[in-house]
Design a protein around this nucleic acid. Structure first.
Length: 268
DNA sequence: ATGACTGCTAACAGCAGA
């Protein structure tokens, strides 16, 4: 099973690019963020024609998340994080796909920090952490996938000193990510590439892509059941080089079949 | 420290993004 995450930055404006990537990469599950489309303007039929069922939570102008599943209809289990019913921003949707529970998230950016937007980011992550703890208690394969808007370490940013006080890299944000990974969630790309500089975002300014001035913001966190099945992980950087590209590139993991754990000796 | 790009909305400029 191949699971990918892609901050598409406008699902309608970039639909041709997205459909090309789906045909080439053939992910089984895709978590999309920044749809920037209201619920009724999500291009469901185009995905259906491409072989993907979908669930989505749209919003006018900003935010918006979706889960696509190849040859299947995701079974929605939740939309929105618990804990702040007055929060109307579309940033979380969760669904079961072929027995795997997928949480698709788009975390708040949080800039400028400090300030009310950063406070909202921290509250949102407190809610995510609480929900993640509940998911960890389940006896099921679970992945928390999406744009976390957190640069986890200095290895994940082209120039750490320039980002010290930014909401993406401030201590409070990095601590959230450390707590999630310490509590049992595996950062899949970093697990398989412990030393490599991996980026998933290059901003549109200052020729960031041309200079490879990137950030790693998009993460695939696996619970222990799925981490045991992790086989490969990467970033489809070529997508960022295309005309009319999103400022993010897709990140993905390949998982082995259930019961195919290879790190432990298996019975003959 | 600032501004540079881009999409969306629809006001042909402003907001948000990261």
């Amino acid at each position: 099973m191949k699971i990918a995450t892609f901050n598409i930055n406008g699902v309608n404006g970039r639909l041709p690019l997205l459909l090309r990537w789906l045909a080439e990469a053939e992910p089984d599950v895709v978590c999309l963020q920044e749809l920037k489309a209201p619920q009724e303007r999500f291009p469901e039929s185009a995905f259906r024609e491409a072989g993907y069922g979908a669930v989505w939570q749209g919003q006018k102008s900003w935010n918006g998340v979706a889960i696509l599943a190849r040859g299947a209809d995701p079974v929605e289990t939740r939309r929105g994080l618990p804990g702040e019913p007055e929060d109307v921003q579309s940033r979380y949707i969760e669904a079961a796909v072929n027995g795997v529970l997928i949480g698709c998230l788009y975390a708040p950016n949080g800039n400028p920090a400090p300030g009310p937007k950063f406070d909202y980011k921290l509250r949102w992550f407190a809610r995510l952490k609480a929900h993640a703890a509940e998911l960890l208690a389940l006896d099921a394969p679970v992945a928390l996938v999406g744009d976390y808007n957190i640069i986890p370490t200095e290895l994940d940013v082209y120039k750490p000193e320039r980002w010290t006080d930014d909401a993406l890299f401030r201590r409070e944000a990095r601590v959230v990510f450390e707590e999630l990974t310490a509590s049992g969630w595996s950062d899949a790309l970093r697990t398989l590439h412990p030393e490599e500089r991996l980026y998933t975002f290059w901003d549109y300014f200052r020729n960031a892509w041309g200079r490879d001035a990137g950030l790693r913001l998009d993460h695939i966190l696996l619970n222990p059941t799925l981490a045991a099945r992790l086989r490969a992980a990467g970033v489809d950087r070529a997508v960022r080089a295309q005309e009319k590209a999103s400022d993010h590139a897709p990140a993905w993991v390949e998982l082995g079949r259930a019961g195919s754990r290879r790190s432990k000796a298996s019975k003959p």
